[in-house]
């Protein structure tokens, strides 16, 4: 257990963080260079104003027609994504671990809040899983990878919840929590989770083309 803990809190953290950073920067840089070479139009039409205008309409709940047409998904998606990003960054235990290692600290969530948010992420995963299976048109689009992805995202939250509540086998859950969290971070740039990094660019470009060239709204 100690050896595993040392790995999970040591070298694996570095692998995950460096892999994540290198993957993110590498893939985005590759896209930027490819765009220079093959899609120069992207740079021509890209407009910060219209990109932000579009992003704003898609980052504020119910600010786009599509979001208003699908209120349940809109709420689920916003709650899920906010909790998914905020919880790991501001969980007290995470902040303390960082503080222990690097002596830097930031604001952290009260434990009960993090607890509730973890549940929301898990429920969100369940919601998306059920939707993927139950809705015919989403099921048609789904690949095996999509299901693996849901599991990949759910794993650190389920194990974190488990070890926090100290249920049976919480020590194993704690190790699994660390490993699965690292795995998710590492996978971020190399799986469909990369949509997180692509969003500002695809949305921004759609907004730019629609705004500056087509004088139309894209929300």
């Amino acid at each position: 257990m100690h050896e595993l803990y040392k790995l999970a809190s040591g070298i694996f953290v570095w692998i995950a963080i460096l892999g994540f950073a290198a993957g993110m920067i590498g893939r985005l840089a590759h896209l930027a260079l490819t765009a220079r070479k093959k899609d120069p139009v992207v740079y021509q039409y890209f407009s910060l104003y219209y990109a932000l205008r579009s992003m704003l309409h898609w980052i504020i709940p119910f600010a786009s027609t599509g979001m208003r047409a699908h209120p349940v998904i809109t709420i689920a998606a916003f709650v899920f994504h906010i909790c998914l990003i905020v919880t790991p960054l501001f969980a007290a235990a995470h902040v303390i671990l960082v503080m222990e290692s690097w002596n830097v600290a930031w604001w952290h969530l009260p434990d009960p809040a993090a607890d509730v948010m973890t549940v929301l992420v898990i429920l969100g995963c369940l919601f998306f899983l059920i939707r993927r299976i139950a809705q015919e048109h989403v099921r048609y689009l789904s690949t095996a990878g999509d299901f693996v992805l849901i599991a990949l995202v759910a794993a650190p939250f389920v194990t974190g919840f488990w070890t926090y509540h100290q249920w049976y086998g919480y020590e194993t859950a704690g190790i699994l929590h660390m490993l699965s969290g690292e795995l998710m971070l590492l996978c971020l740039p190399f799986t469909r989770l990369f949509h997180m990094a692509l969003w500002p660019f695809t949305r921004g470009y759609a907004g730019s083309e629609f705004g500056s060239l087509r004088h139309a709204r894209d929300w």
Binding site: H2, M99, E100, A105, Y170, E171, G174
Partner: peptide, 28 residues
């Protein structure tokens, strides 16, 4: 108090990890 927390955690955990003995996870 984070500074104090840090001191306690480092005191206990560092040694436990060195000796491969004793609790290291939060819940332990």
């Amino acid at each position: 108090p984070m500074e104090l927390t840090r001191a306690y955690h480092r005191m206990c955990k560092t040694c436990h990890l060195e000796k491969n003995a004793g609790p290291v996870q939060c819940a332990q």
